[in-house]
C-alpha cells in the first residue's frame, strides 16, 4: 500500500466514531484511574468508615469494639458540651458572615475607585492570608496579652488608667477574641472576591446613573450592590464553610477553653477523639459535621444556580 493511501485509510479509521469512542474510553480509564483511586481510598472510604465507626464504641487502640447502635448519636445530641460547641460554631458562622465579609466589601468598594497605589493596598490587606493560622494565632495572643498586649496598652493610653483584662482567659470574651483574629486573616479573601465581582460590572451602568443625577451613595446602593449578588453568595458560602473548619487558630489561641467556652464542633470532635480516645463518639460528631456541611453545600449550589438564572 502506498504511503498516502495508508494515511488516508488510517485517518478514515480514526474518524470512525466507534473506534474513536472505544479509544476515548480506554484513555478515560487510564487517566482517571490513579486520581480516582487516591481520592476513593483516602477521602471517600474514610468518610464511609466514619459512618461505620459512629455506630461503635471503638477507643482507638483495641482491635475489638461493639456496635452500640444509635447510642453515640443520642448521647452527643443530649450533651451540654455538644450544644455548647454547636452554639459556638453558629456564633462563629454569623460573625464570619458579618465581620470579614462586610470589611472585605468596604475595602473592595474603596479600592475600586481607581485610587493611587491600589495594588499596594490590596497586597497589604491580602498579606495575612498567606500566613498560617498558627502564626496568626500567635500574633493575636500577643495583641490580647493582658499586661503588654497592644489592645490593652491602647485602652490604657486612651482611658489613662491601667487596663489588664485577660481577653483570652475569660469565658465571656475568648471566642470573640479568636473570631477577631480570624476575621483579620479572612478579610483579604472576601475583598479579593468582591473586587473580582466589581470588575465584572459594566462601567456604563454607573456612568448612566451619574448622568441621571444619582449621588455616589445612591449609585453604590442601587446599582453596584445589587450587581454584586453573585460575589456575595460566594463570600457568604465560603465564610460559612470556613467557619465549620475553624480549628487551628482556636487550638493555638484558646484550645477551646476556658471551660469549653470557645469550643467549636471541629474542636470538640478533636478533643473527644484524640484527647479522650472516644473514637466512636468522635465519629458520631464528625458524621453530624458532615451532614451540616452537606446541607450548606446543597443550599449554596442551589443559590448559585438561581444567581446564574437571574443573570443569564
Amino acid at each position: 500500500m502506498s504511503a498516502p493511501l495508508f494515511r488516508a485509510v488510517t485517518m478514515a479509521r480514526r474518524l470512525d466514531t466507534g473506534i474513536m469512542e472505544r479509544q476515548n474510553t480506554i484513555w478515560r480509564i487510564l487517566l482517571l484511574a490513579i486520581p480516582l483511586a487516591v481520592f476513593s481510598i483516602f477521602i471517600v472510604w474514610p468518610l464511609l468508615n466514619s459512618f461505620y465507626y459512629s455506630f461503635t464504641n471503638w477507643n482507638g487502640f483495641n482491635a475489638e469494639y461493639d456496635f452500640v447502635g444509635l447510642k453515640n448519636f443520642s448521647k452527643v445530641l443530649t450533651t451540654r458540651l455538644f450544644t455548647n460547641a454547636a452554639i459556638n460554631t453558629l456564633i462563629w458562622m454569623v460573625a464570619a458572615i458579618v465581620l470579614p465579609s462586610l470589611a472585605g466589601l468596604g475595602l473592595a468598594l474603596l479600592l475600586d475607585s481607581k485610587i493611587r497605589g491600589a495594588n499596594v493596598f490590596k497586597s497589604i490587606f491580602y498579606l495575612p492570608i498567606c500566613l498560617s493560622a498558627i502564626v496568626v494565632g500567635q500574633i493575636w495572643v500577643w495583641i490580647f496579652q493582658p499586661d503588654w498586649g497592644l489592645l490593652n496598652m491602647a485602652i490604657s493610653a486612651i482611658s489613662g488608667e491601667p487596663f489588664t483584662y485577660a481577653w483570652l482567659a475569660k469565658p465571656g470574651s475568648a471566642i470573640y477574641a479568636v473570631i477577631v483574629a480570624w476575621s483579620w486573616q479572612q478579610t483579604g479573601l472576601s475583598m479579593v472576591i468582591f473586587l473580582a465581582g466589581l470588575t465584572g460590572i459594566p462601567q456604563d451602568l454607573t456612568e448612566v446613573a451619574e448622568i441621571e443625577g444619582a449621588t455616589r451613595w445612591q449609585r453604590t446602593w442601587h446599582v453596584v450592590l445589587p450587581l454584586l449578588r453573585p460575589a456575595t453568595v460566594v463570600v457568604i458560602a465560603l465564610s460559612v464553610i470556613n467557619s465549620l473548619k475553624g480549628f487551628d487558630i482556636l487550638y493555638i489561641m484558646t484550645g477551646g477553653g476556658p471551660f469549653n467556652s470557645s469550643d467549636t464542633l471541629a474542636m470538640y470532635m478533636y478533643n473527644e477523639s484524640f484527647k479522650k480516645y472516644r473514637m466512636g463518639y468522635g465519629s458520631a460528631i464528625s458524621v453530624i459535621l458532615f451532614l451540616i456541611t452537606l446541607t450548606i453545600i446543597f443550599i449554596y449550589f442551589r443559590q448559585l444556580k438561581k444567581v446564574d438564572e437571574i443573570y443569564d
Binding site: F39, P46, K245
Partner: peptide, 15 residues
Amino acid sequence: SGMFFPPQIILIPLF
C-alpha cells in the same frame, strides 16, 4: 465538593 468539607470528618478512619 470535597474541598468544602472539614477534615475532621475523615480524621479517625485515616488514623
